[in-house]
Amino acid sequence: MAWTAEENKRFEKALSKYDKDTTDRWEKIANMVGGGKTVQDVKSHYKLLLEDVERIESGNFTFPNYRFLNRGAN
Rank of each mutant, 00 (worst) to 15 (best):
G59P: 13
N70T: 10
G72V: 14
E27C: 03
K17W: 00
Y18G: 03
N70S: 11
K20D: 10
V53D: 11
V42Y: 01
T22V: 05
W26P: 08
A2V: 03
F61K: 13
R55E: 15
E51A: 13
Y18D: 04
K13D: 04
F63T: 11
T4W: 01
M32L: 10
D41H: 08
G59L: 10
S44H: 12
R55G: 05
T22R: 03
D52M: 07
T22D: 03
E6Q: 07
E51T: 07
K9R: 12
D19A: 03
I56E: 13
L50N: 11
W3Y: 10
N70E: 14
I56R: 14
R67H: 08
F61D: 12
S58T: 13
G36N: 09
A5S: 08
E27Q: 12
I56T: 09
R67E: 13
E27P: 00
L49R: 11
V53A: 11
D24P: 01
Y18C: 03
K20T: 05
K37Q: 11
V39F: 02
K47I: 13
K20L: 09
K43W: 01
D52G: 06
V53I: 14
K28E: 14
G35W: 09
N70F: 14
L50P: 01
K17V: 02
E6W: 00
K43Q: 14
V42T: 05
Q40G: 06
N31C: 00
L50W: 01
Q40K: 09
D21K: 15
L48P: 01
Y46F: 15
A5L: 06
M32F: 03
L48H: 13
S44F: 08
L48A: 15
L50R: 11
E6I: 02
N8K: 07
M1N: 12
R10N: 08
V53L: 12
S58V: 04
E12R: 03
G35L: 09
Y46C: 07
W3R: 03
T38L: 06
W26L: 06
K43T: 09
Q40T: 10
F68E: 09
K47D: 15
I29C: 10
A5R: 11
K20H: 03
D41V: 02
K37H: 12
T22L: 02
N74V: 08
D21F: 11
V42S: 04
W26D: 10
V33E: 03
N31P: 00
D19M: 00
N8D: 11
F68A: 06
T23N: 14
A73V: 15
A5V: 08
V53M: 11
K17F: 00
Y18W: 06
